[in-house]
Design a binder for these strands. Structure first.
Length: 502
DNA sequence: GTCCCTTTGAAGGCC
DNA sequence: GGCCTTCAAAGGGAC
């Protein structure tokens, strides 16, 4: 279990990474950012068509209350304090918007040892699991647990947001119902029942095959206690040590029934429900055969993508076959080209070791589904904007947890792939893809500013801040306002100011 | 089918 | 050291 530098000297930057938020107008922006996440959703949705943020000023009072307190103490002390505090309020505060909902076995102290000495789940663990997975019968169909779940859900752990991101505090059931009525939201999905391990399900979920429940997911029973335990795929090796039963790895029992954006809400497979880096100690060679039997051939990582341990590492991605074949066709036209193509082919066959996820990526993985569910947004660009703002709205302690996880990911990644460099994945080194990006497009000077503020109402400082328009005003002058970029355009500004709905 | 968009952070290269 | 670029995830949208 990752600890937040309780005393160890091994911090690889978690503290350093606690960079203060941007200055310059960010003060004002922070006010709006710290304005609740739910407004973010509304903001973004509306701002997709240039919504104004001016109304955010009206709620600055409540926002001030939500803002993290001044951080006069050392970060380390604060971190420890917050952990202790979390430990104290583990039961009472469980439904009070847990500070780190995505990492229950880290942030929910009780879940670090969710099992009681007799092997049964601790009350808090049960409650938490029920909250996270309402369909998971933690106690073998215990009516009690269901009742407890029902009760527990009443005080909404967070804000359930309806299809239009309206807030209905305390109206969880209603909101859920509304969500269910919404044709954009999976009926079974509860917005807050995002799998608590999503952030640890790093790398792609591409190996998951929606369909019938995998046989291995039949709830297994603890041989000692007789208590059914959540399924635990044998091929998953915990990176972050878990207690007996590895509660953190419990897939949603109905995960295969809960599609979301073409993916399960609770990805379950070795590719989808997994820890970032299976350790060599607990994985055996039968994994590939297991994969072969459970997944379509194209989803089973070829052997050459196995780690030296024989593990199909989640960070290893094999380039798709089609590209290879197309290159082979081209190569067949010319012998020299053929050789080149062969080389490329071999190059492409080399496993692609992905970068470890950084803190924000981990955060995004965790929160994306929630945002999608809350706001019925699907465009990742818009979602990421929301997540970016939420990220800034997080307290340092909350961010620190993700930094710590990211740090551990990097450490493990380094251990598993000592010679790997991020450079290896740069286009050219790795042929499997792709991309040259917006920077290239920025060649046009006019676009530069525009791209920096891709969505004016999201990225610009408050409308009252005239510094941004000054950029284009300085560049082109007042008499060439037609050359001003969108965000700087006074017309757009007034549009933003006056537009608040789709 | 491929790339772009959008976010933040990490890492590498260049000056 | 500062700046720039690329990549990591994600999925709709554009081409």
């Amino acid at each position: 279990m990752p600890q937040l530098n309780g005393g160890g000297g091994d911090d690889l930057g978690a503290n350093d990474e606690m960079i203060s938020f941007k200055d310059e107008g960010e003060q004002e922006e922070k006010i709006s950012e710290n304005s609740s996440a739910e407004r973010d959703l509304a903001d973004v949705k509306s701002s997709l068509v240039n919504e104004s943020e001016t109304n955010q000023n009206s709620s600055s009072d409540s926002e001030a209350e939500r803002r993290p307190p001044p951080r006069s103490e050392s970060f380390r002390d604060k971190t420890r304090e917050s952990l202790e505090e979390a430990a104290k309020r583990q039961d009472g505060g469980l439904f009070k918007s847990p500070p780190y909902p995505g990492y229950p076995f880290i942030m929910i102290p009780d879940l670090t040892s969710p099992y009681l000495p007799n092997g049964s789940l601790s009350p808090t663990a049960r409650t938490y699991l029920q909250m996270k997975w309402p369909l998971l019968d933690v106690q073998a169909g215990s009516l009690q647990s269901r009742q407890a779940l029902k009760d527990a859900r009443s005080p909404s752990p967070a804000h359930i947001v309806g299809p239009f991101c309206l807030e209905f505090p305390g109206q969880t059931d209603l909101s859920l119902h509304q969500l269910q009525l919404s044709n954009k939201v999976p009926v079974v999905q509860h917005p807050h029942h995002v799998h608590p391990l999503t952030p640890l399900i790093t790398y792609s979920n591409e190996h998951f095959t929606p369909g019938n429940p995998p046989p291995h997911l039949q709830a297994d029973v603890d041989p000692k206690t007789g208590i059914p335990r959540p399924p635990h795929p044998p091929d998953i090796s915990p990176y972050y040590p878990l207690s007996p039963g590895t509660v953190g790895q419990i897939p949603h029992p109905l995960g295969w029934l809960v599609p979301q954006q073409g993916q399960p809400v609770y990805p379950i497979t070795t590719g989808g429900f997994r820890h970032p880096y299976p350790t060599a100690l607990t994985v055996n060679a039968s994994m590939s055969s297991l994969l072969s039997s459970r997944f379509p051939p194209h989803m089973v990582p070829p052997h050459h993508s196995l780690h030296t341990t024989g593990i199909p590492h989640p960070a290893i991605v094999t380039p798709n076959v089609k590209q290879e074949s197309s290159h082979s066709d081209i190569g067949s036209l010319n012998s020299s080209k053929h050789q080149d193509a062969k080389k490329e082919e071999e190059k492409k066959k080399q496993p692609h070791i992905k970068k470890p996820l950084n803190a924000f990526m981990l955060y995004m993985k965790e929160m994306r589904a929630k945002v999608v569910a809350e706001c019925t947004l699907k465009e990742s660009a818009a979602i990421n904007q929301i997540l970016g703002r939420r990220w800034h709205a997080l307290s340092r302690e909350e961010q620190a947890k993700y930094y710590e996880l990211a740090r551990k990911e990097r450490q493990l990644h380094m251990q598993l792939y000592p010679g790997w460099s991020a450079r290896d994945n740069y286009a050219g080194n790795y042929q499997g893809k792709k991309k040259k990006r917006k920077r290239e497009k920025q060649a046009g000077e006019g676009n530069e500013h525009r791209e920096y503020f891709p969505n004016p109402c999201l990225s610009l400082p408050p409308i009252t801040d005239l510094s941004a328009p000054k950029k284009c005003r300085a560049r082109f002058g007042l008499d060439q306002q037609n050359n001003w970029c969108g965000p700087c355009s006074p017309n757009l500004l007034s549009f933003c100011s006056n537009t608040s709905s789709l």
